[in-house]
């Protein structure tokens, strides 16, 4: 039995799981405030654009998006299996492809700011 290559994804799942647990609730709270009309100062166009223009802001945004995409893609794959979908290979390709495209897109958007 060959050793598994799952660690490469699991690494992002573990790191992403930790990050998502720590920051996602407060991020949702911020956009919820914006959704109810109380746009937080940092979410104004000028402030957020300035943040994303700096290398530190770019790094923070990329790390959050990259790890969230990969960790949730991996979890969604397992969730599909747990709900009874047995086409695990197809499911894995679809979610990991979304995570790949999302990661590349976020790099592209950040480069434009």
């Amino acid at each position: 039995m060959a050793k598994s290559n799952k660690p490469i994804i699991w690494g992002t799942f573990a790191a992403g799981g930790e990050l998502v647990s720590l920051v996602t609730p407060v991020l949702i709270l911020l956009t919820l405030l914006a959704a109810t009309g109380h746009v937080p100062d940092a979410l104004s166009y000028a402030k957020l654009h300035a943040f994303a223009a700096g290398w530190f802001g770019k790094l923070v945004i990329f790390v959050i998006l990259f790890l969230s995409l990969w960790s949730q893609a991996h979890r969604l794959r397992i969730t599909c299996f747990d709900f009874g979908m047995r086409a695990d290979g197809v499911v894995a390709v679809v979610f990991y492809l979304i995570a790949t495209v999302g990661s590349l897109a976020s790099l592209m958007y950040l480069a434009r700011i």
Binding site: Y45, H49, A52, I64, L65, Y109, L110
Partner: peptide, 8 residues
Amino acid sequence: LLVGLARL
């Protein structure tokens, strides 16, 4: 969030 970044 990703869409937000795109719009930004």
